[in-house]
Each structure stands twice: as structure tokens, then as C-alpha cells.
Design a protein around this nucleic acid. Structure first.
Lengths: 343, 343
DNA sequence: ATGGAAATTGCAAACGTTTGCATTGTCTTG
DNA sequence: CAAGACAATGCAAACGTTTGCAATTTCCAT
């Protein structure tokens, strides 16, 4: 394993008999270096295939052209779609992306963020799934001058950019709409409440019932930590209730809905004639089921794009010493009727 | 935007009145530093929340604990599943992941790789989609001491680790099996042949026919650059052939198959009774269609895991100056019968 | 010619580590 | 008690940049 060294500034310096600082300035198009020498240097640089060392640059400038992205886990397609949006914008702007998953615990979330901070990333886009009773470490990161952008969750205490999708309103509006058109008995397959999105979707469901003065039947809220628990949950439900007792099943997300779909099909329950089914997220797969899944659309890729734009803005402002006004962008969600619902 | 500085070795050095080198050694558990001082130093480090600066370390050691991953594009779920496998292994081993997409051109592929190299990543996992007439830049990277692992494509000229899924055999075996059980008229929806996987899958199809002395009907190979062209392709086919003339449609990948599925349903063609349909890749969505899609399984996540293990092995060997024997791991693909086929 | 401003280039410190070598201190042993 | 061995620590260079300041050169107006 022979190691061929890379050309450095000092190589160029020797080759051209010019001081290293002149070389550096020339390559950075610093105004006060002679145009002729500049050209000379650039040519030589190309000839020797000089490429700057981002580590050295980062160390010196305390800032790498790199964005950190932290996901909770990789188990839903939604995150990948967001990532796709981020990756598109960032690479257009010449930024590298470092990804990290936070896994299951608060501690891991914290570690992941700190690790990114020590890489001197230019900014961090975070999906935090857990509540942090003491989010001060987040403020610490900001104090280091690293812009933080939060996705899908708001911390009142923290002044930052936010991109959230309106989980609450999405569910609330849709359920409300169904009720107002006469739908009565509505189930909710509830996700892990530690995750804020699950919490907000449940809340939307409850509030819609409340507003319409429908009393909450606790049996109608089926808690599932994971999509694998959906079928059991439904089995329990139907051991207690008849088909006619149920009009619509709403779900924490599309994956829950897929499970429900399978369950219903297995039991020869017709969708939507016997029971209607509603997902959440509009995962790409939802077009391919049959019947095609009605769902609540969440513009995943667009969220990635917007988040990227916002954080790049903030970075740019900071670099130029301008003040910057934080924004909260609420991405609207909307009911998307396909075949698994009637209304 | 106040900037709170991070604690560095020299901060610790001052605080403890010890030389910086002792601090460094202590924290790296170097044997020749007194156990008591070691403990002292570590405590202080924790107290001041010292975290090493990976940039400085990388610059010094010419190696960051970072793995680069290059994808062609992000438009199929397959890559995400591989990424999931990679991310799992790498974070277990304390490596960060930098991702990059190569986009549409050879030039971009080359740039992406070189950019990663200048980040002094410890290794690069690459999906290259294009043929490179001059792959010498890849060898250059290796010469810099950066292990390269190729996914899904073999370069005869380049000695490296490879993880490939057996596209050819997967398609060949399956088609062969169908023929031997009496299936006659088999279509292939062919992908973009610039991409090696598309090429190999087509080849598998052709060879299977050849082996069984079935003459190739050029009409039966329908070239589609993209899944969006599938329906048009099929429309053309059926303008020339009757339903009875076709027994089975094989596809470049599951997404092509999904399109075909829609087309067939739209035209009230029953699957699999009238026409059978076979995908490729076993994308997660293929369970949710109806009928459920039969496909050829490709163990995506596992490929990511294996690739990670292999490249970590190589890195470790290199670091210890041991010699390392390159491997080529061929992941087996297999026919997965679900509901869209009969056999 | 000549003073001085402006343009160009060079010097050296700094970013935060790691590590070979030199130095100091401590202990053992004959 | 001296000397050598070993343990512990310190010194300084190196990784490849950037950048404020100093030094040099060029040029123009007087």
C-alpha cells in the first residue's frame, strides 16, 4: 500500500518559489495579489491537481462546509424523503452532509449532536424524538455558533429555526370533516406517545371529537408502540365490537394503516364500504395498495428543501455578521382522498 | 451570537499544570503515564467537558473516523435500505458517515469521490452507476491509502473489496424455472442499460431464453429509461399482441412492476390468471400491492452490513500494517413467490 | 529626484492534536 | 554510595491552512 502524497500549498510554494501565503490568497481570489501571478498559481495548482484539505481549513476557520443531519431512526420512509430534499439543496450549495441517527434514547440524541458539533459542522438539522427535560445542551451548541434547525418539534425555550408539519391540524381538520359529514364511530390507532408527532396526531383526533361533542370511548383509542401491534389491537377491538359499530379507522401513520389494511382484508371486511381507513404521511407506497390508501399528506421532500434553505440562510447571515431573524415554517398537511375512504 | 469556546488540551494543560503531551497521552490511555495522574486528568477532562477535535486529530493522523458513502441517486428505496445497514454497523463502531450522491454523470461521480478523499475519510463505499472508461482516479484514491469498496459492480482492473448482488443469476434462474414449468411468452421491461444492474438483469433474461432454445422476439424486450415509460411501452405491446400472446412480464425492478401492475389493472387484465408479473429487488412496498408482487429478493440492508464489515476489516488491517486479502462477496438473490405469479 | 501612497509579497502565529526524542526524577542493585 | 535502569513528564515539530502585520517593490505626483 504505497501512499502517494497529496499536493499541498507548500508544494506549490516550492514549485513556484512564492510564499505559501501568496499561494493561499491567490487560490482564494484575494484582491491584493497580482493578477498575473494569480493566473500562474492557479495553473500550477491545476497541473499538480491541488485540492485543499478541508480538515486543515476547518481547523483554521472553525467551520467546515458540512451540514449535520440527525434522524431518530431509519425505519420509516418519511425520513429518507426528507433526506433526499436536504441532499439535493446542500450539494447544490457545495455542502457535504454528515448523517447520524439518534437511536432510542435521549442520551444518544445528545451524544449525536455533540459529536456533530465537534466536527465543526456549519449547521445541524435535527429531528428529536424525545422530550428533553433539560435541553440546555442544545443552547450550548448554539452558543458555539452552530445554527440548529429543528424539524417537527418546537422547543419554546429555544430560539431557532423550525420546520414543522402540522400534525395536529392535519388530523383535527380531517376528522372534523368526516364527523361533519356524518361519520360516527371513529377509531384511532395511536403511536408511541413519547414521540411528539404521535402525540399531536392523537390530540388532533381527540379535539375533533370534543369540538363535536362526541364523548371519547377509550376502547376506540388503540395504543400501539409499533406497527407490529396493530393487528392484535384490532383483534381485541373486534372481539368486543361488531362491524357496524365502526365507521372509520384513523392511524398514526401509513404503516399502521397498511397493517390495518391487511387485517381487514384477512377478515374479509370491505374497504371502504364496511369500514373506511385513513393513513398519515402519504408514503409513496400508499398509492400501490388496493384499495389505494387515503391519507394525510406531509410534504417530506419539500420539508427537507425548505429546512436546507433556511439553515443556509442563517449560516450566510452569521458569516457576514448580519443579524438574523429566526423563522418557523409550518408545512401544511391536507387530506388526500384515494380509495380507502368514502368522503 | 456569543461564542463559548470549547475546552482544548491546552486548557486542561493549564488547569492542571501539566504538559499538553501528557494530557494527550493520558486521554489516549498511553501506557507510560502514571495511573494517578491519568485518573486526575480524566476527571478534569470530564469536569470541563473536554471533547477532542476530530478535525485536528484528522489533520494530524491523516485519518478521520469517517466513512464516505456514494450513491448514484436517491430515487429508489433500495439505496436507503442499504444505507440503513451501513449506518447501523458504522455507528456501532464509532464511525461517522458522510453521504454524497453522484447524480447523473461520470464527472460528478469522480468529483464526489475526490471530495470524500480530501476529507480524509477512512474508507469509501461506492455505488457507481456508470462505466468509467478511465477508472484510474479510483486507483489514485486507493494509492492515497483509502480503502474503496464497490457495491453492485466489478472493475476487473481494480483490486478491491466488492459486494455485489447476483443480478444475472437471479434473473436467469428465475426465468429458466418459469420456462421449464411451461411458461412460454415472456416479456422483459428493460431499464437503462448504462446502469450495470439493468444490463445484467436483461442478460439473465436473454440467456435463459437462449439456453431453452427460445428465439428472442425483439418486441418482447421493452426498453424504458425510467418507470414512467412503462405504461406507454405496454400500450404499444398490446396494440400489436393479444392477451393470450403473453404469459409473464419480468421487470428491471419493482417500480417498473408497480407501473405494469397499474396498467394491467386499468385494463382489467387479471393478475396472475391472465398475465403473471415479476418484479426485482423486493422493495418493502411489494407486500402491500394487491395482488402482492412476486419478486426477486435482494438483501439490501444485509448488503450494507456486509459491506461495512468488510471495509472496517480492511481499515483495521491497514492500520496495523498487516496485509489484507480482498474479497468479493456475492449476495445471493432468489425468487420470492407471492401473488402475482402462479409458479 | 523624492516623498509617500498603493500594490504586492513575505513572515509568522494560530487552529488542536499526536509523537519521537530529550529530560528529569525515582528506584534498584552491586 | 554510585550507577544504571526505568518510569514519568516535558519539548518541539508536524499535519495544511488562513490572516494580521511587516517588508518590499512599484508607481505617481510634486
Amino acid at each position: 500500500m504505497k501512499k502517494s502524497r497529496k499536493t499541498t500549498l507548500s508544494d506549490l510554494s516550492k514549485a513556484l518559489n512564492l510564499n505559501i501565503s501568496t499561494i493561499s490568497r491567490a487560490l482564494n481570489d484575494h484582491p491584493k495579489v497580482n493578477e498575473t501571478t494569480k493566473k500562474l498559481i492557479k495553473e500550477k495548482a491545476k497541473e499538480l491537481d491541488y485540492r485543499p484539505n478541508p480538515l486543515a481549513q476547518g481547523l483554521q476557520k472553525q467551520n467546515t462546509k458540512t451540514i449535520g443531519v440527525i434522524f431518530p431512526t431509519f425505519d420509516t420512509n418519511f425520513f429518507f424523503r426528507v433526506l433526499k430534499g436536504i441532499e439535493k439543496m446542500m450539494h447544490e450549495s457545495g455542502y457535504q452532509i454528515i448523517i447520524s441517527t439518534a437511536g432510542e434514547s435521549r442520551i444518544q440524541e445528545k451524544k449525536a449532536i455533540q459529536s456533530l458539533s465537534s466536527y465543526h459542522v456549519s449547521g445541524i438539522i435535527v429531528f428529536l424524538s424525545f422530550e428533553h427535560e433539560d435541553p440546555s445542551f442544545l443552547i450550548d451548541i448554539q452558543d458555539e455558533g452552530i445554527p440548529l434547525l429543528f424539524m417537527d418539534r418546537i422547543y419554546e425555550e429555544i430560539d431557532a429555526n423550525y420546520v414543522i408539519s402540522d400534525d395536529f391540524v392535519g388530523m383535527y381538520d380531517t376528522v372534523n370533516q368526516f364527523i361533519s359529514k356524518g361519520t360516527k364511530n371513529i377509531i384511532h390507532l395511536q403511536g408511541n406517545l413519547q414521540i411528539s408527532t404521535a402525540f399531536n396526531r392523537l390530540l388532533g383526533y381527540k379535539e375533533a371529537l370534543l369540538k363535536n361533542k362526541i364523548s371519547l370511548n377509550p376502547d376506540f383509542i388503540i395504543p400501539c408502540q409499533h406497527q407490529t401491534e396493530v393487528k392484535t389491537g384490532l383483534r381485541n377491538l373486534f372481539s368486543k365490537y361488531a362491524l357496524e359499530d365502526i365507521d372509520l379507522i384513523t392511524c398514526y401513520n401509513d404503516y399502521y394503516a397498511f397493517q390495518a389494511l391487511e387485517f381487514l382484508k384477512e377478515n374479509n371486511i370491505r374497504i371502504p364500504q364496511d369500514i373506511q381507513l385513513l393513513g398519515f404521511a402519504n408514503e409513496p407506497l400508499s398509492v400501490y395498495t388496493s384499495p389505494k390508501l387515503s391519507t394525510i399528506n406531509q410534504p417530506a421532500e419539500e420539508m427537507g428543501v425548505i429546512a436546507s434553505e433556511m439553515i443556509l440562510q442563517e449560516i450566510q447571515h452569521n458569516q457576514q455578521g448580519e443579524s438574523y431573524q429566526f423563522l418557523t415554517k409550518k408545512m401544511s398537511t391536507f387530506y388526500l382522498k384515494r380509495e380507502s375512504t368514502l368522503l
